[in-house]
Computed example of a mutant assay.
Amino acid sequence: MATRLNRSTLVSVLVVATALALVALGLSAIANAGPGAADAAPEAAGKPAAASHVAQGHAMAPAKPVAFGDDPDGDGYIPAEPPVTGVEPSDEIPPHRYFHEFQANCSVNHTAPDDPIVYPGRAGASHDHTFMGNDTTNANSTTASLGAGGTTCLAPGDRSAYWMPTLYNGNEEVRPIGPQTIYYKAGVTDYRTVRPFPKGLRFVVGSPTQTAEEFRNHPGMVEGYECGESYHNYDFPAACPTSRDTQLNLRMQAPSCWDGKYLDTPDHKAHMAYPVVMGANQDVCPPSHPVALPMIEFKMAWPVNGDMSRVRLASGTGHSFHYDFFNAWDDATLDALVDHCIVGALQCNARGYDENNPGEGAALDENYELPRP
């Protein structure tokens, strides 16, 4: 019996040793063949190759706070200095005015796989983004670097960074053409209480991982994707009219109530909130986020139509749309526009001029700058 056990053990040892030798030889062959061999192996075995980030969405590594730039301790919290305290949300109903807004008209200036909010200091870590406004935005951007940058917004004082996932038709990048409309509105009923963004405030609207249902029910959703007479699409429509002036459009609003404490939080959202409905159906900031700020609304237009079956975002399907905002306005310029147009209840263009109320004048001059004394 002992002899049989020894023989069995010997056979097992030989089998294991042979298998290990074969594995070692296989790994050595792959290593000697170069980096392309391992990538080709799944395809050679009849398995599909990894999907291109252009067509299917780039799978990003989980984002964890890191010590960089405006967040030197790397905990994900960037305190407001000084914080805004002692604010009570207003539930008063002001004189009725239909409009209280102005526009920031900003053109696309570059695309890159960077995201200075979600992946600060990590160039290439994100899916591809399309950037508007500040022309220096990259993974290393900080409040100070944006303040020293240029801009493709009509107002030179708007050096803020705006970005969203890049849109592709097949493998072809599709960029919005010309200045895009970015509204600054009152998100609360008492528009008189809206104050300018603090310098360095940043946040993300939506999520690249949201489902179609979450996208549809997002509190910032306006009408989904639009083209021609097709509205309320929460993924890309199958087709759009092929007329020259038909584009793919989307409008989405940002939260406009701030906690007054942080310019950013680890999830890039918790310091902001949407107004809640209270009292006589008015929109009021919640007590946890009592400071009313302008409500940003992206109104994007991509020059793509016809067959939409190959249209994708760098982040994935149509319902993965989201956008980022990093405030770097010149303080005095933003103050003037908020006071004149939002608090003043006007429908202003990028100069802070309401064509329907010419007697109210403009916040900025013909060069979109503050008038000189």
Rank of each mutant, 00 (worst) to 15 (best):
N134Q: 11
P120C: 11
G121S: 00
Y119E: 07
A144R: 07
S141F: 06
Y162V: 13
A148F: 07
D128C: 02
A144L: 07
H129V: 04
I117T: 08
G157N: 10
A155C: 02
P120Q: 00
R122W: 01
A148V: 09
P116V: 05
T137W: 00
N138R: 04
P156W: 05
G147Y: 07
S126I: 04
G147T: 02
D158L: 15
F131K: 06
T142D: 01
A123E: 12
A155H: 00
G157C: 14
M132P: 01
G124Q: 03
T136P: 02
C153D: 09
H129E: 15
L146D: 07
T130E: 11
L146N: 12
P116C: 14
W163Y: 15
W163C: 11
N134R: 04
P156A: 03
V118R: 15
D135H: 08
G133I: 02
P120W: 04
R159S: 01
H129G: 07
G121H: 10
S126T: 05
A161T: 15
T137M: 11
V118K: 13
S126E: 11
P120D: 14
A123C: 02
G157A: 11
L146W: 09
T152P: 07
G150R: 14
R159W: 14
L146M: 15
L154R: 12
G124I: 03
T137F: 00
A139Y: 01
H127E: 06
F131D: 06
S160K: 02
T152D: 06
R159F: 10
N140R: 03
N140C: 03
T136Q: 13
T130Q: 11
N140A: 12
D128W: 06
A125C: 13
A125R: 10
T137K: 09
G124Y: 13
G121W: 09
G133C: 03
T151V: 15
G150K: 14
F131C: 03
V118C: 14
W163E: 07
A125M: 12
S126Y: 05
R159P: 03
F131T: 04
G147H: 04
